[in-house]
């Protein structure tokens, strides 16, 4: 079975994720888009593992999942702290640093 279609799907998901981070104003949604990008990379690695006949790519996805979970812990704590301070998670509201 050709893995091409999986790769196209991965590329589409990655693009959607990138656009999401760029244009969505809500920090939570932007963060979810980053997670989508990581999962797109996972899908690509699994598809490539199938195509190249190795297990490396499949094993790598487990590492990525663990890293993504750790990133959620750190990210949500930062976003919640910001939310409690200013009652908003909009990245536009966070503008003290723009000069």
């Amino acid at each position: 079975m050709s893995p091409d279609n999986y790769l196209y799907l991965a590329a589409i998901l990655f693009t959607i994720g990138t656009i999401g981070v760029m244009i969505r104003r809500n920090a939570l949604v932007a963060f979810m888009s980053v997670e989508l990008m990581l999962n797109a990379a996972n899908l690509a690695m699994v598809a490539f593992a199938l195509a190249r006949g190795g297990l490396d790519g499949q094993v790598a996805t487990f590492f990525v999942m663990v890293v993504a979970a750790a990133e959620v812990v750190v990210g949500l704590s930062i976003i919640i702290t910001i939310y409690r301070t200013r009652r908003s998670t909009s990245v536009d509201a966070a503008n003290l640093l723009k000069l």
């Binding site: 990655f14 981070v21 690509a44 190249r52 790519g57 990133e71």
Partner: peptide
């Protein structure tokens, strides 16, 4: 955090493509 996570997602997709 947001920009760092974005850049590491790019890094990871780069890894996936080079692996491919």
């Amino acid at each position: 955090f947001l920009l760092g996570a974005l850049s590491s997602a790019f890094f990871l997709f780069g890894i996936a493509l080079v692996y491919g």
